[in-house]
Design a protein around this nucleic acid. Structure first.
Ligand SMILES: [Zn+2]
Length: 420
DNA sequence: ATAATTTGACCAGCA
DNA sequence: ATGCTGGTCAAATTA
C-alpha cells in the first residue's frame, strides 16, 4: 500500500514536471468522455497560449450562452450577468426549492443534474463556548461573514431555517443579484492553486460525464496557499489557504480525496474586510471570463454541503468519514471517480486565535541565540528620520527606498553609519 | 524582477 | 520518551 502511494506521488511529481506532455495524454483521455462539451475545458491546456486565451474565452462564452440557454431561460443580452449567473444556475437545485423569493433564482428546471445541500451541524458539547454557535444558527445576522461566504454559492435564506441538529436539505441556490459580487479574481491565486488537483483530476476523472473538474469552490475572497499536506486516514490531501488581504487572518482548509476532488472546505476565522470587488481592472474581465466557467464546471455535478461549526473539536473524525461518500462504493471505482461530488463547506470560528501557531524563528533566534544555518537574524525597529539614532540605539543612514506591493508604505533601506 | 505556489522541514499537541 | 498528525514556515521553484 505504502509503496503504491509513494509511487503515485512520484507519478504526480512527474506530472508536474512535465505537465505539458502530460496534458497531451490527458487530453486524449478526456477526449473520450466529453466529446460534446469538450469546449468547456479549454483551461486545461491554456497554459501555453496566452494569446489565444481570449479568443477561446469568447467562443467559450458563446458556448456558455448556448448551453445555458438550453438549460434555462436567460436574457442573453446581459452577458455580464450571464457570467455571474452561470455558476449559480448550474448550482441550482432542482425545482423543489425552499426559496420563496425565487425571483432571484432564474427559473430553475429539473434537468439540472445537481443538488445542493446545506448541512448545518451544531453539536452542543459540554456547554462551553457554543453559545456563539447557536446564535449563529438561529439568527441570520450572526455572521455577516458567514453569510457572505455562503451567499457565494448558496441562498442564505435557508440557513435560518436550519435546525440545530443536523439538517440536510436541498435548496435552490443562486442568489443572483444579491451576491456581493462574486468570486472574481481569486482566479490567479486560485487557478494556480488548483493545478495539482486538476492534474490528478484529469487523469482520474475519465468516467465522469462532465468535463474537467476544476475543483474550486467560489468565494469572493482571494486566497493564497501556504501549505499542503498528505493525509493518510481518509487518504488524500489537505491544502491550506490564507486570505491575501493584508491584516486579514481568515483561512481555509481544503480537504481532497485521493483523486483530488475537494470533499470538504473548512473556513476558519472571519474576514476583516469585505470581499474584494475590483471591476476596474482591465484584466479582471479576462480573468472573470476564464475563471467563472471553470468554477461552474467544477460545481456542475457536485452537491455542496455546507456545514457550519464553531469548533473543530465538536466535529471529530467521524464526520470526515461520513461526508465524503458511501463507504461501500468508494473503493472499487476503477478510475476513482465514484466520488459523489459532495463538497462539504464548514465554517469554523475560533474564539482564541491559533493556539497552535508556530513560534517564529526570529523570536527563537532573539531569545535563544540559536541560529539556523544560512539564516540571518532580522531586526525590525521603528522608523525614525532619514538619518539619526534609531530606536535600536544605532545610527542609520537611508540609502534607498522602494515601493512594495501590498504595502502602502515604501520600504526604506538603511545602512549603518558608524558614529563614534 | 516580482509574486505566488510547491514542498520539505519544523513545531506543538496528542496518544 | 516516541511516534503520529495537523498546521505553519520558508527556501526553492514556477508563473
Ligand atoms: Zn480576508
Amino acid at each position: 500500500m505504502a509503496e503504491s502511494e509513494s509511487l503515485k506521488a512520484l507519478q504526480l511529481q512527474q506530472n508536474k514536471r512535465h505537465s505539458k506532455e502530460q496534458n497531451d495524454s490527458n487530453l486524449e483521455v478526456e477526449g473520450e468522455l466529453e466529446d460534446e462539451e469538450g469546449e468547456e475545458d479549454i483551461d486545461d491546456d491554456d497554459d501555453d497560449d496566452d494569446e489565444e486565451e481570449e479568443e477561446e474565452e469568447k467562443s467559450q462564452l458563446s458556448e456558455l450562452q448556448q448551453l445555458t440557454d438550453s438549460q434555462l431561460v436567460l436574457s442573453t443580452s446581459q452577458v455580464e450577468d450571464l457570467r455571474e449567473l452561470k455558476l449559480e444556475t448550474l448550482v441550482q437545485a432542482p425545482s423543489n426549492a425552499i426559496l420563496s423569493e425565487n425571483d432571484q433564482c432564474v427559473g430553475s428546471q429539473d434537468n439540472s443534474p445537481l443538488e445542493t445541500h446545506v448541512e448545518a451541524e451544531f453539536k452542543r458539547q459540554d456547554g462551553v463556548s457554543h453559545a456563539k454557535v447557536l446564535g449563529s444558527a438561529t439568527t441570520q445576522g450572526a455572521g455577516a461573514q458567514i453569510q457572505n461566504e455562503l451567499q457565494s454559492s448558496i441562498c442564505s435564506t435557508s440557513l435560518s431555517e436550519l435546525s440545530p441538529t443536523s439538517v440536510t436539505q436541498p435548496i435552490s441556490s443562486a442568489s443572483g443579484p444579491t451576491l456581493p459580487e462574486p468570486r472574481l479574481s481569486p482566479s490567479k491565486a486560485y487557478n494556480a492553486s488548483t493545478q495539482e488537483a486538476d492534474r490528478q483530476n484529469s487523469s482520474d476523472l475519465k468516467s465522469l460525464s462532465a468535463p474537467i473538474v476544476k475543483t474550486r469552490i467560489p468565494d469572493a475572497y482571494n486566497w493564497r496557499k501556504y501549505g499542503q499536506k498528505q493525509v493518510k486516514s481518509p487518504k488524500g490531501s489537505r491544502s491550506y489557504y490564507r486570505c491575501t488581504y493584508s491584516d486579514c487572518c481568515a483561512k481555509k482548509i481544503e480537504c481532497s480525496d485521493h483523486s483530488g476532488h475537494v470533499i470538504e472546505i473548512v473556513n476558519k476565522g472571519t474576514h476583516s474586510h469585505d470581499p474584494p470587488q475590483k471591476n476596474n481592472y482591465k484584466r479582471e474581465s479576462k480573468v472573470a471570463l476564464s475563471s467563472r466557467p471553470i468554477l461552474s464546471n467544477s460545481l456542475m455535478e457536485h452537491s455542496i454541503s455546507i456545514l457550519k461549526d464553531s469548533d473543530q473539536a465538536t466535529l471529530p473524525k467521524e464526520c470526515m468519514q461520513e461526508t465524503p461518500m458511501i463507504p461501500d462504493k468508494k473503493r472499487q471505482s476503477s478510475s476513482g471517480s465514484n466520488w459523489n461530488g459532495r463538497i462539504q463547506i464548514k465554517e469554523e470560528h475560533v474564539c482564541e486565535p491559533e493556539p497552535k501557531r508556530r513560534v517564529k524563528k526570529e523570536n527563537l533566534e532573539c531569545s535563544g541565540t540559536l541560529l539556523k544555518p544560512g539564516k540571518k537574524p532580522k531586526f525590525v525597529v521603528h522608523a525614525g528620520a532619514d538619518v539619526g539614532v534609531s530606536s535600536d540605539g544605532y545610527r542609520w543612514r537611508k540609502y534607498g527606498q522602494k515601493m512594495v506591493k501590498g504595502n502602502p508604505h515604501p520600504r526604506c533601506m538603511f545602512i549603518s553609519s558608524f558614529i563614534r
